[in-house]
Write a protein that binds this DNA or RNA. Structure first.
Lengths: 225, 225
DNA sequence: CGGTTGTTTGAACTGATTCAATCTGTGTGG
DNA sequence: CCACACAGATTGAATCAGTTCAAACAACCG
C-alpha cells in the first residue's frame, strides 16, 4: 500500500497526502530486534511506517531497556532538533519510508492543515503514552499484558466479538513494554489461557472472551479517539 | 511575573510572547489537591501556568490514580479536540492563566514561529513522558523517587553542587507519580536520609550528596534539553 | 480545642524477580 | 531427511521488594 493511502486512512486529505508522497524519500526494510537507530544521536529525518511496527526504546543507566512507544502502519516519527533520547527498532519486519527533514519541514510549514494533522496525531500518541503510564504504574502484571493486547488489536484495526491477532511481539518485547521480565510475561500468558480469556495457536492469539479480557485489562479505548 | 516573561525565559521571542499576553484571558488561583478539571469532559481552553505546579492525572477503571505529567511555571496545556482523557489538579497553590481556544488557535495559526515554539515544548514534554515510563517500568522504588526529585530540581530551575528544594509534593502525590503507595514512598525517604543522600527540614529537602543521588536515580538530564 | 491532612511505623502477605534448567519450533547445511 | 544450532517459550525454587491494613503520631488551622 502506498504511503498516501495509509495517511488518508489516518484522516489526511488526499491532496495533502499526495504532497508527502511526492517528497523525496527512500523505502527501507527493517529487520526486527536489530539495531536500526541508536539512542543519543542527532537524526534529522522523518520516518513513516508503511508496513509492520516500529518501537521507540530507551536504555536506562543500568542497561535496562524500556519500550516507550509503538508506531503502527500509518504512524510516523517526526524530526526533532538535537539528539534523540530514544532509539528505534522494529518489532516485526517492517517497511519504512525515510525522508529528510529538509524536504519535510517546508512542506509542513506551507500547509497549515498538514501541520494540524500532525498535531492531532501527536496528541493521540501523547494520549497513548499517558495510558501506558497508567498501565505501568497502576495495573498488575496480568492487566498490563492484557491491556497491551487490547491496544494492539485496536491499533492494528481489528474488531469484532472475538478478534484474532497474530501476536507481533516476543515475550521479551512485551516485558520491555510493560516493565516486567519475560519470565513473568510467560506466566501471565499461561494464566490468561487457563482463565479461558485467550487461546494460543503458535503465534496466533484467539480472544475467546473479548469483553472479559477488556474488563480485566480495564481497557477503555476512548483514549485512542 | 507576567506570562510573557515566563514564556520568554522558555525561549519564545518577545514579540510573540506579547501576542499571547494580549489574548483575552482570566487568571485563576487553583488550590492544591482539589478538583479543578475533570477527566472525560470536553475542554476548549488553553492553560498557562504562571506560578506553581499543575498535574495531569488519569484514574484507572479500578479507581487507582496515576499522575501522568506535570506542568511547571511557563508550561502550558494546549487545547485538544474532543474529550480530554485526563483530569487536572494543582500540586501546590498555583496561578493559572486560562484562555479560550477560539482566541488562541488563530494566533498560533497566523504565526508559524509560535506554532514551532509550541511544537518544541510538546516534544520536550514527550521526552519527559518517555523518561517517566522508564522510571515506572524499569527502576526500583528508591530510584523512582530519587529521579522525580532530580527532575523537579532541574525543572524548577535550581542548580548548584548541593541544591535545596522545598518539596512541593505530598508523599501520596509522589506515590501517584511513581506508581507506588504512599507507605512505601515514606520508607524510601527514610532510606535516602539514612544513606546520607538527603536531609529533611520540614518541607525542605537538602541534597547532601547531589552527584550520588543523581547516580542512584540514574538521572541524566539531557532529556530535558 | 477538635477536625483535617499528612507522615511514620509494624506485621503479614503477595506478587514479581532472579537464576538456572528444560523444552519447543524453525531454519540450515550436510 | 536428519543433525545441529539458535531463538524463544516454559517451568521450578528461592528470595526480596512492595503492598495492604491498621494504628499512632505530628502539624496546622479555624
Amino acid at each position: 500500500m502506498p504511503l498516501g493511502d495509509t495517511l488518508i486512512k489516518a484522516g489526511l486529505a488526499p491532496k495533502l497526502a499526495k504532497l508527502l508522497e511526492d517528497m523525496p524519500h527512500k523505502v527501507i526494510q527493517v529487520d526486527p530486534r536489530r539495531p536500526f537507530r541508536e539512542q543519543g544521536v542527532a537524526r534529522d529525518e522523518v520516518l513513516f511506517v508503511r508496513q509492520g511496527i516500529l518501537s521507540k526504546f530507551k536504555t536506562d543507566g543500568a542497561g535496562r531497556r524500556q519500550i516507550v512507544a509503538l508506531r503502527f502502519a500509518g504512524d510516523g516519527i517526526l524530526p526533532r532538533e538535537g539528539k534523540a533520547d530514544y532509539g528505534i527498532q522494529a518489532i516485526v519486519r517492517s517497511e519504512v519510508l525515510v525522508g529528510s527533514s529538509r524536504d519535510f519541514d517546508p512542506i509542513v510549514d506551507a500547509n497549515p492543515d498538514l501541520s494540524k494533522f500532525f498535531w492531532k496525531l501527536s496528541q493521540r500518541h501523547t494520549a497513548i503514552g499517558y495510558e501506558w503510564l497508567v498501565n505501568c504504574g497502576r495495573r498488575d502484571s496480568t492487566a498490563r499484558v492484557a491491556h497491551l493486547l487490547c491496544e494492539t488489536v485496536a491499533r492494528s484495526g481489528k474488531s469484532g466479538d472475538s478478534p484474532r491477532l497474530v501476536n507481533p511481539f516476543t515475550q521479551q518485547q512485551i516485558a520491555d513494554i510493560t516493565g516486567q521480565t519475560s519470565v513473568n510475561v510467560n506466566r501471565v500468558f499461561a494464566d490468561l489461557e487457563r482463565q479461558g480469556l485467550i487461546r494460543r495457536d503458535g503465534r496466533e492469539i484467539i480472544f475467546c472472551d473479548w469483553p472479559e479480557l477488556q474488563r480485566v485489562a480495564s481497557f477503555q479505548p476512548q483514549y485512542l479517539n
